[in-house]
Nucleic acid binder design. Structure first.
Lengths: 206, 206
DNA sequence: GTCTATAATAGGATAGAC
DNA sequence: GTCTATCCTATTATAGAC
């Protein structure tokens, strides 16, 4: 048990940065910056500055340095995405339609952010392959988690577990790829097509 | 007309690096390194070293520096992917099967390279969004080009142009996302599922 | 076209006072 | 827990000889 002064709300809903503890501010800053600039494109000093923290504080909470911080940032992005995905899938009786609407929601978020707020982990994850084992492994776990959520929703809708697991792979892959293409092309179209075709694919398996 | 000493073959087939001109060696080294490490993770000096060239030569051919070189590397990766895609689609009468085999070929290449040889441009492209306009635009053009090739193959197989264009978006997105997931997870499964479901999706539209 | 040397700056990480 | 100052190395890019 740590005696942390945390009477304030610290859910990710819409807590003002100023009300968060130092550690959380650092993780959030790292998450946002690495999402947009990747691991190598984001500096430790930039993270500290954006988080209104000092280098001393940063290395106090993350003695493992940049790599440990990146792993925490991936975990944070994971939770963020899980929350959004659950909000779309939880009470939906038609998962095909729910997934399509989720994809269109991603397109909205992208367009509003001028195409920079894509998947919270893919940029960092892709740059970590074969080079940053802890980061890569955190990202792999996140992807597996997301597939699990999708598969669960498909099973609930009557699809057999084995088939649902297979479909979940393609659902997540297609969402990832479409978001990447949408960002690079600065266009909603890839995500709109993903929404349409994923719905068709899921419907074809019922 | 430039008077270049180029009696040697310079197709991308299997030319030994030593037989290439300095400029080509630099572009190839940049392409490979940025594919694996991204734009920010790859140093100009590392590129020069890997290409057996000096910094002076590098800046002679690319006075625009790293950004101009990255753009050339994207163009190179684009041509590489186009060649592979054409080889799979060109004489195929069944595009669904051809795309599935292409996806499995990507999985082979990935596994053989210990999951580092993924899409030649996606890492650099994703890291360029909103930060390196020339690089991003070259990547966007490449994606559009690939979609055009897929759409063409689908039209040849009897699918209406409008529908083929839509499907091509999802085909490329899914391949991109599945390759990303396969790399991060160090597993063939995402690409195997993409192969299966893309074939189903295309077949459902004939 | 190619080479070496170097300028100018930013990178990650640490030390030690408070 | 937080702060500043600093070490050491790497970075992109340029200069000017050859």
């Amino acid at each position: 048990m740590k005696e942390s002064p945390r009477s304030n709300a610290e859910q990710s809903g819409s807590t003002p940065e100023s009300a968060l503890g130092t550690r959380d501010r650092i993780v959030r800053a790292a998450s946002v910056l690495m999402q947009r600039q990747g691991y190598d494109g984001t500096g430790i000093k930039q993270i500290a500055q954006e988080a209104d923290a000092t280098l001393g504080s940063l290395y106090h909470f993350f003695p493992g340095g940049k790599q440990e911080l990146a792993t925490a940032a991936i975990d944070h992005g994971n939770r963020e995405f899980v929350e959004a995905l659950n909000a779309s899938l939880d009470g939906a009786e038609d998962p095909a339609r729910a997934l399509a609407e989720f994809a269109l929601g991603l397109a909205d978020r992208l367009a509003e952010s001028d195409w920079v707020d894509g998947c919270p982990i893919s940029t960092t994850a892709l740059g970590s392959v074969g080079r940053l084992p802890d980061v890569q492994s955190a990202a792999a776990q996140a992807f597996a988690h997301w597939r699990g959520l999708v598969s669960g929703a498909l099973v609930k809708a009557g699809i057999a577990r084995a088939e649902a697991d297979e479909l979940a792979h393609t659902v997540i892959s297609t969402l990832e790829g479409a978001e990447l293409a949408a960002q690079v092309s600065a266009s909603r179209v890839p995500l709109e097509m993903a929404a349409k075709h994923l719905a068709q694919l899921v419907d074809a398996h019922r």
